[in-house]
């Protein structure tokens, strides 16, 4: 009974030991790969850090310029001698540890983007919803034109500078005011929004559109009309 117990304890310890060594090895090899050593001729912010520390502790009286020159070299040697380190004038892991700095930047490695510009697909959907709500039943180019007006507004100084800003500007679109914008867009509205985002603009820079049968504003009638598509007049 006791014998069996002992055996299993040993087995567990052995496994732990093996796993531990493997992890250690892994960790070591990873670290070794990115280990940096500062030496004569090195430059950069890490050198400045070293200089700052050495100056603080009175080993160094040169400028903190990030250039590992003769003065820094001598100062490091002095520091190493005083602290019982191997005197080689370079800042390796041991010297760095004694100085209280780390040589590796663990936080600064660049993470590549995945899947790309998701923000643009958000804009696409919002634009498609507006097209769907404002131009249902209009011919296809009439839909592209509505989307193009939104994009022309974004580029124009007299309007907000984002797609959402233009669409949700109070009173700008009836479909937003009455909530129809929240309907799910159909496939055609999505395609029209996409064509507009790709640069197709049947209105040639129009900023407004209106239905002449429903509009009473005299101001809007005074604007130069670029094109009439379906029920909408597109004007600038």
């Amino acid at each position: 009974m006791g014998h069996k117990n002992k055996l299993s304890v040993i087995a567990v310890l052995l496994t732990l030991f093996i796993c531990g060594t493997m992890l250690m090895e892994h960790w070591k090899s990873q670290n070794a790969a990115v280990e940096t050593i500062l030496y004569w001729g090195s430059t950069g912010s890490k050198v400045m850090e070293v200089q700052r520390k050495l100056k603080q502790w009175g080993y160094y009286d040169g400028p903190i310029d990030g250039i590992y020159g003769a003065k820094t070299f001598e100062a490091v040697k002095l520091f190493q001698r005083k602290n019982g380190l191997k005197v080689d004038g370079g800042v390796g892991p041991q010297t760095a540890a004694a100085l209280g700095i780390t040589l590796n930047d663990t936080s600064t490695s660049y993470q590549p983007s995945r899947g790309g510009g998701t923000s643009s697909s958000g804009d696409l959907y919002l634009l498609a919803r507006l097209v769907h709500a404002e131009a249902r039943g209009e011919p296809y180019i009439g839909k592209v034109a509505v989307a193009a007006v939104v994009l022309n507004r974004v580029k124009h100084p007299a309007f907000p500078n984002t797609i959402a800003g233009v669409i949700y500007q109070p009173g700008a679109f009836t479909a937003v005011t009455d909530g129809q914008i929240n309907l799910a867009p159909d496939e055609e509205a999505l395609r029209a929004a996409r064509d507009a985002l790709n640069g197709w603009d049947p209105t040639y820079g129009a900023l407004y559109y209106y239905n002449p049968a429903k509009t009473t504003s005299s101001w809007i009638w005074s604007r130069p009309v670029h094109i009439v598509i379906g029920n909408h007049r597109f004007a600038k």
Binding site: Y204, G205, V225, I229
Partner: peptide, 8 residues
């Protein structure tokens, strides 16, 4: 189809 009277 509809004609335009813009810059082009």
């Amino acid at each position: 189809g509809p004609e335009t009277t813009a810059d082009i």
